[in-house]
């Protein structure tokens, strides 16, 4: 799977309350969540983000709560992929379980600026900053997790195993 989009750059330790503030968690409707995505960090984000855009963030992206509303809001807002120096554990797990593409690459993060155009190949982990003419390789994803994504997420893989009653 290949992606191409414009960069939205964020700092370190972007917590789940910033991705989707808890005050909006009385719903799980993706469209509604999307309208508040990143609201406390950048109030204009939800109205300006375009389908296919890429979030590039520093370390520990998605720390805090276990809410799947965070990857759901990002996906519904049109974010195609998140590239970060590192991800918080539950966010990382959630992203794979529900099919939000994410990649870890310190170099891609260090060199990217707001508005750069970035290409990412989710199969090979290759990232290209088209604006700057730079190429990087993301940290490889364990084969088990690649399988999860190929199966269409955790629940689909369970279904294929015939474990649903």
């Amino acid at each position: 799977m290949k992606l191409r989009g414009k960069v939205w750059k964020f700092g370190a330790d972007i917590d789940t309350d910033r991705i989707i503030p808890a005050r909006y968690l009385n719903t799980s409707d993706p469209k509604e969540l999307a309208t508040h995505c990143m609201e406390d960090e950048d109030p204009s984000f939800a109205s300006k983000v375009r389908p296919g855009d890429v979030i590039v963030a520093d370390k520990n992206f998605g720390c805090g709560s276990s809410r799947e509303h965070a990857p759901i809001a990002l996906k519904a807002a049109g974010v195609a992929c998140v590239i970060a120096r590192s991800f918080a554990r539950i966010f990382y797990r959630n992203a794979f379980n529900m099919g939000l593409p994410i990649l870890e690459s310190a170099e891609a993060v260090d060199t990217a600026e707001n508005g750069d155009v970035i290409e990412a190949d989710m199969d090979t982990g290759e990232i290209r900053n088209v604006t700057k003419g730079l190429g990087f390789k993301a940290r490889p994803v364990p084969p088990f997790m690649q399988e999860l994504v190929k199966a269409g997420g955790l629940l689909e893989s369970i279904k294929k195993r015939g474990a649903v009653v």
């Binding site: 276990s66 539950i90 959630n94 529900m98 997420g153 955790l154």
Partner: peptide, 29 residues
């Protein structure tokens, strides 16, 4: 499916927070 599930480690249990999809999987299997 709550990040502070790690609390029960106080009892000598392995306990960890996960997402809703994980919870669905665990509820089923």
């Amino acid at each position: 499916a709550d990040s502070h599930t790690c609390t029960y480690g106080a009892l000598g249990a392995f306990s960890t927070g996960v997402g809703s999809t994980d919870l669905a999987a665990a509820m089923i299997t």
